[in-house]
Design a protein around this nucleic acid. Structure first.
Lengths: 236, 236
DNA sequence: ACACAACATGGAATGGCGTTCCATAATCAT
DNA sequence: ATGATTATGGAACGCCATTCCATGTTGTGT
């Protein structure tokens, strides 16, 4: 039916030789990070990746099962590196702030990580983050019965920020960030929107002008203060 | 080159008649929600949607620009409905807890909403959530200079939970949820993992056995306590 | 040395997706 | 009644992740 054989008489089997620089999971992940950082999440395709690695799409599957695995491994690697770079601090509260800020800075430098962390639950990267947060909470003296909830709360907060950051970056690719936020803030001032959303109307200018990192840091402080208050005050 | 015209001599232009039940953005969104709830996020394709609507993929584009717009509108509709159903409470603290729990229950009933909210920043649905949270913070007596940060913190926490919930649901489609968590907890007990992640090792059983909704509620309480402590204590 | 099993390679093929195109039909304005 | 405008929906397009497989390469046992 589809002129199957006449169209492709002989596919000319090209000469292939084994590459000298061995393909490996590590090399693939490294190339993936390079592509993701340089051209964004949607630019990571097997075609682009295999071009960067000077191979074919099929070869990649000998080392990693699928695209999700590539993304998960790439995110994991960066999380581990980010945590390794956090200087240790004798003061426990400074310690956890430093860890939380390291996450924020990681998402700033590699926005696609935020998308990835929201995609697969309790993947390896999240375990590292959970462990780091929990260790510092322990050092801070948070009682054991609150540790799980406290660590989860901080983790969920980070993940929410990460996701928003990633999608904002994806959307504001060309527009600079402040113009992008100004546009949204202006939308909040539209008569129709403002009438039904007075709170957001009042916040519009802050949305346009706020410092993301400072706001994140303040959010962390809210949660830490809450943990301190609840655990000191005798319970939830 | 590709036997272009001989293969398709005359495409037999079929008879078509205008539908009696008009296609509309509303009808499309409703059908999309039905498909998403029944078969999950990855089941929403233009082909499936147009089959459900008894039309062709092209017709949908007369009413909505693209798939993202469908998803954003569907999420927005459910968020508005969920907020409309929250009973008002004279006690401000109960009020905000009720709103936050309404979000959680929404994500439980429609996990795909969680994915969607992480995808587009400051979309309409987020505005509704931000407004609802902010209104209740105002009622709670949070000073104006803290309102933006406090509302954002709660919103980011919700979004983090939403994203995790959505991906957990996607992954645990067949497995029931507790078996899924038990698997992960068992992974945290593996000798190699446990050695480098002692905190997570200690938390493994809680991960497997915890009540998600209770933990979420406790997280909200942490943040509310933090807001109260910081605003009462004179600053960040 | 040599044969042979096992594995790595990478180009082609597959099936499915979102989106666009466009001949046709229904409707509206005149 | 007629022409302009819009809605329709099936086909086609280009891209994607993934699979297939003929071909090469490597390592092992003898």
């Amino acid at each position: 039916m589809l002129c199957q054989d006449r169209c492709m008489p002989s596919p000319t089997p090209a000469r292939r030789s084994r590459r000298t620089d061995a393909l490996s999971a590590d090399a693939i992940i490294e190339a993936a990070i390079t592509v993701l950082d340089a051209e964004g999440e949607e630019a990571l395709t097997f075609r682009a990746l295999s071009t960067a690695l000077e191979t074919g799409p099929g070869a990649i599957y000998n080392h990693l099962a699928n695209k999700q695995e590539i993304l998960a491994a790439a995110a994991h690697r960066l999380v581990v590196h980010a945590l390794a770079d956090v200087p240790s601090d004798p003061d426990a509260e400074n310690g956890i702030r430093a860890v939380m800020l390291a996450f924020f800075d990681l998402f700033g430098a590699h926005p696609w990580v935020g998308t990835q962390l929201s995609r697969e639950p309790w993947q390896a990267a999240l375990l590292e983050m959970f462990e780091a947060i929990g260790t510092h909470l322990e050092a801070l003296g948070v009682e054991e019965r609150y540790q799980f909830t406290a660590a989860s709360s901080l983790l969920n907060f980070v993940l929410g920020v990460a996701g928003q950051h990633a999608s904002a970056t994806r959307l504001a690719r060309d527009l600079d960030r402040s113009a992008f936020l100004r546009d949204i803030a202006d939308g909040w001032k539209d008569e129709a929107t403002a009438a039904s959303h007075p709170f957001s109307r009042r916040m519009a200018d802050q949305l346009a002008e706020h410092d993301d990192r400072q706001q994140y840091s303040d959010g962390v402080d809210f949660i830490l203060a809450g943990i301190a208050a609840v655990t000191a005050g005798g319970g939830l």
